[in-house]
Structures are given as structure tokens and as C-alpha cells.
Design a protein around this nucleic acid. Structure first.
Length: 457
RNA sequence: GCCGCCAUCGUCUAGGGGACUAGGACGCCGCCCUCUCACGGCGGUAACACGGGUUCGAAUCCCGUUGGCGGUACCA
């Protein structure tokens, strides 16, 4: 199989484009075929080098690689011109000055079910001549055959008056030259396919097989946009998702494995992905499931890997936090270990466990609930216990505090929550024993003292 | 308007005429575990858009309606 991913650099790579890239990649890797990356930048106004860089960056982050390219469509202008000249010579295409309004007027006059057919004028934009009779049938691996009657089709403009080619022409030529066997892309291109097929036919060229993927929508069923939160690959990365989790999740949008499994490694994805099993209905991108899935991947990571991922993430998102974390690798490792089962995204780490690296102000609500008279009395005793024990490790700390709970005959939370608030500033944190040990005796006692002093005021 | 695609729990989906009392996953709810938050375990909630056919039998096939989406650019 020879496949291609052909984004147009008019914006960031969004999740729909990422899925198209992934499906092509899975097919290439699973079949021993090749994947061609082509940048469709024939829209000179909207295509920018920054967007190209961003798309490549996104693919790199997703760990989707390609075998050929990136081919810039704009650099193939000469080839496009050649084929265009051939079509013109052979009468398959002609120049016409007809505008969009002219086409509309034509159809109003001739009836809605009669496609626009222009006259050879020798100047103006170049249109492809569509046969009056018959139909073009798109053979789609996912959808079966779709028939487009020629009478409904307008002669499409394939090149501007200045000779620069348009999308539907360039794609056909580029796919042909690249020897693409399977065109896998979004369903928004289905209606364009007959035009491309007609170009190929006029050229007497072979036709590839098509597969049009169902479109992706936002949670509200509307077109995906920034409004829906993390819609681009970059935003997903910034939100603290892992590439492997994102790949797993988007693979499941419009496709399901035969085994009905949800968590699938990239290798399993490669082994199991079949175009024939891609669904025909549009899917909504709902971040909730991705969040859950990311948590699964985080829990499955080694502590080493998780720590590195957290560090990289902080590096990008929070320089201060990154510096704090970088200063003590051993501590980061421990912090990652005790946070691992409590976070779903890398971005959850710092809010939950940052207190292990930096002292924080105690939140008002937490103080009100857990720094009252009784709590202060308990915390004072707990402080004494912690100051007293010989070894400051988890078993010792646990034994000491559990002893206190038993002696005081209070609920465990009455001891642990004031301590938690004192050391973390809030009511949720990793396990209290682990947190205290990781903080160390000196720092723990200091924070309890600070909290006690604050409560007295 | 015209052309086309699509239609199963809130969401992603399984389903290819009888195996469907419609399965799984996320979410949600409840219980258990529990130092908080999570994790984990157990249980529950919830869907074949509507109307006609075809058939002994339809979530599955056909037609229509409705709805969603795409195309209809000298955009991609």
C-alpha cells in the first residue's frame, strides 16, 4: 500500500487531522507500505511556513513518522502545468471567463439538475469538461459505491486564469505521481472525489482506492473548534496528555477493534486496524474519555518515565515549577510515585503535589475546616510525635500517627486532615505518610509550626 | 435550492434477517475498600430517530419523512 497524509497548512493540526494521519500511518506500518507526507499549500493566502512547522511538530509529538516528503504541493507547479497543458490540448479542459455568478445564472435558467457547461473562450480560468452523459462512481472502502450523475456536476475550475492550479486538480496529479494506492481522508472530500476521478480519467491514468473517514465533531455535535477546549494536537500536549494515550483514543473515534478492547497499544493498533471496520457515522470528540484513558496510561508508566514526562511538561508550562522539580531528581521520582494513581494528566501533578517542592499558603476553606481549636490541639500532639520518632520513614511515621489516633480515640481523619492542611495548604494530597516522609522531618515540623502560628492569630 | 453522506445508551461503539431480554468502554448513580483525592472491586442507570413496506421473523433489507453533516469557490 502507498498512502499519504496531505494536510493544508491553514492552521494547527486539529484532532480530526491527527486521526487521519494516524489511520494512514497505521495502514502503512501494518502493511509494510509507505506513507507520504504532502503539504497542500496551493492556497497562497492562507498557507504559512509557521503552520507547516506546527503540523510537523504535532506529528513528531504524536510519534507519527513518514517515509517520503514532506512534498510541498506548491513546488510541483511545473508538473501541474504540464498535465494542464495536455488536458487543454486534448480538449478535456478549456478556458472560460464564466464567474460563479454566471454559473448560478446558468443553472437558474437551465434548471437545477443541469450542471454548468461553459464555452471555450480562449481566456479566463481553466475548467475541466465533464461529460454530459453517464456518471462517475466513487468506490469507497468504507462506504461502498457512491454514484455522481454527470448532469448534476458543473464543469469545475481546475486552474486560475493565471495558470496556477486548484486543489482538485493538484491532488489528482500529486496522488498519481506519488503512486498512491489508497486515499484515506476526511469525508468532507467525498463530494470532491468525482472531480479528481474525472481529471484522472481525462488523463487516462489509473485510479486509487478511496476511503472517506467520518468527520469529527465537538461535544455539542457542531464542528470542532477552539470553543471545545483542546481541539488541536498542541493543546492536547499542553493539557498534559500522553502521545500514546492520544493515539489510542483517537483510533477509537470511528473505529473499534474486533476484540472490543478499549486499551490498545500502538502495536496492537497497527496489527488490528482495518479500513473495512471504520464506521460511517460522524463521531464527537469528548475529552472525558480521553482523560480517563490518559490516567490508565499514566498508571501503566514506569515511575522513571512518568517523572521525565512531568518534568518535560512543566518545562513547557511552568518554568518555576520546572526549576523546582529539576533541582532534585530523587525527590521528583518519589513525588511521581506517590502521585501516579491520583492524576489523570501531567498537568494535574503540580496542583496536587507541588507543595512537596514549595511551601504554599493555606487555603481559607481548608483552614476554617481543619484548623479549629480541636484540630490545633491534635496537630500539636502530632507534631510532638513526629519530632520524637527515631527513624523518619514511612513505617515509623505511620506507626506514630496511628498510635496517636488510637490514643486519642478519634477518627483517623481528625489527625490526618489537619496535618495535610498544614503541609500542603489544602485538603487533598497524596498519601499523608508518604507526603510527610518525602517532605522530611525538618520541613514537616516547620510547616506544622507555621500552620499552628497562623491558626493562633 | 441542488448533489451527496450519515442516523444504536449522554458519549465512543458491537451488531451484517432468527444467537438481542441489544453487548463492551467512558460518564453518571449506589455499595465495598479507604487518612483526603484517587485507584481498585461489585452492582445499577441508559439506546435501535419516526412512518411505511419486504419477510414466518427486522436494530439489521427497501422506500419515505425528519434531523445532523459535507460539497456546490479562479479555498483546501
Amino acid at each position: 500500500m502507498r498512502l499519504r497524509f496531505a494536510p493544508s497548512p491553514t492552521g494547527a493540526l486539529h484532532i480530526g487531522g491527527a486521526r487521519t494521519a494516524l489511520f494512514n500511518w497505521l495502514l502503512a506500518r501494518g502493511s509494510g507500505g509507505r506513507l507520504v507526507l504532502r503539504i497542500e499549500d496551493t492556497d497562497r493566502e492562507r498557507s504559512t511556513p509557521e503552520n507547516v512547522a506546527q503540523i510537523i511538530d504535532a506529528l513528531n509529538w504524536l510519534q507519527i513518522d513518514w517515509d517520503e516528503g514532506p512534498i510541498m504541493q506548491s513546488e510541483r507547479a511545473e508538473r501541474h502545468r504540464q498535465e494542464l497543458a495536455r488536458l487543454l490540448d486534448q480538449g478535456h479542459a478549456y478556458r472560460s471567463t464564466a464567474t460563479a455568478e454566471d454559473v448560478k445564472a446558468y443553472k437558474a435558467k437551465h434548471g437545477a439538475d443541469r450542471g454548468f457547461r461553459g464555452r471555450q473562450e480562449g481566456e479566463g480560468a481553466i475548467r475541466l469538461r465533464v461529460p454530459d452523459e453517464g456518471a462517475t462512481i466513487v468506490h469507497d472502502v468504507i462506504r461502498g459505491d457512491t454514484r455522481f450523475e454527470h448532469v448534476h456536476l458543473d464543469d469545475p475550475v481546475i486552474a486560475r486564469a493565471d495558470g496556477s492550479v486548484l486543489y482538485n486538480f493538484a491532488v489528482a496529479i500529486d496522488d498519481l505521481d506519488a503512486g498512491i494506492t489508497h486515499v484515506v481522508r476526511g469525508e468532507d472530500h467525498l463530494s470532491n472525489t468525482p472531480k479528481q476521478l474525472l481529471v484522472l480519467e481525462a488523463l487516462g491514468a489509473p485510479q486509487p482506492l478511496y476511503a472517506h473517514l467520518p468527520l469529527l465533531h465537538g461535544p455539542d455535535g457542531k464542528k470542532l473548534s477552539k470553543r471545545h477546549g483542546a481541539a488541536s494536537v498542541q493543546e492536547l500536549r499542553d493539557a498534559g496528555y500522553l502521545p500514546a494515550a492520544v493515539r489510542n483514543y483517537i483510533a477509537l473515534l470511528g473505529w473499534g477493534s474486533e476484540s472490543d478492547e478499549t486499551i490498545l497499544s500502538t502495536q496492537e493498533l497497527i496489527d488490528q486496524f482495518k479500513l473495512e471496520r471504520v464506521s460511517r457515522n460522524p463521531a464527537r470528540f469528548d475529552e472525558t474519555k480521553l482523560r480517563w484513558m490518559n490516567g490508565v496510561y499514566i498508571r501503566a508508566s514506569s515511575v522513571e518515565d512518568l517523572a521525565s514526562a512531568i518534568e518535560d511538561h512543566l518545562e513547557l508550562e511552568d518554568p518555576d515549577a520546572a526549576a523546582a522539580v529539576r533541582a532534585d531528581r530523587a525527590k521528583l521520582l518519589e513525588a511521581a510515585r506517590i502521585s501516579q494513581e491520583k492524576i489523570q494528566r501531567l498537568s494535574d501533578f503540580w496542583p496536587l503535589s507541588g507543595f512537596l517542592f514549595q511551601e504554599r499558603e493555606i487555603q481559607e476553606k481548608a483552614r476554617a475546616r481543619w484548623m479549629g481549636e480541636e484540630s490545633v490541639a491534635i496537630a500539636t500532639q502530632a507534631r510532638a510525635e513526629l519530632a520524637d520518632i527515631d527513624a523518619f520513614d514511612e513505617p515509623s511515621v505511620q506507626r506514630a500517627l496511628e498510635g496517636l489516633v488510637a490514643r486519642l480515640e478519634v477518627k483517623p481523619g481528625n489527625v490526618y486532615q489537619p496535618l495535610r492542611v498544614a503541609i500542603s495548604g489544602t485538603t487533598t494530597s497524596p498519601g499523608i505518610f508518604e507526603s510527610i516522609v518525602l517532605l522530611g522531618r525538618k520541613e514537616t515540623l516547620k510547616r506544622i509550626d507555621d500552620a499552628l502560628a497562623g491558626a493562633a492569630r
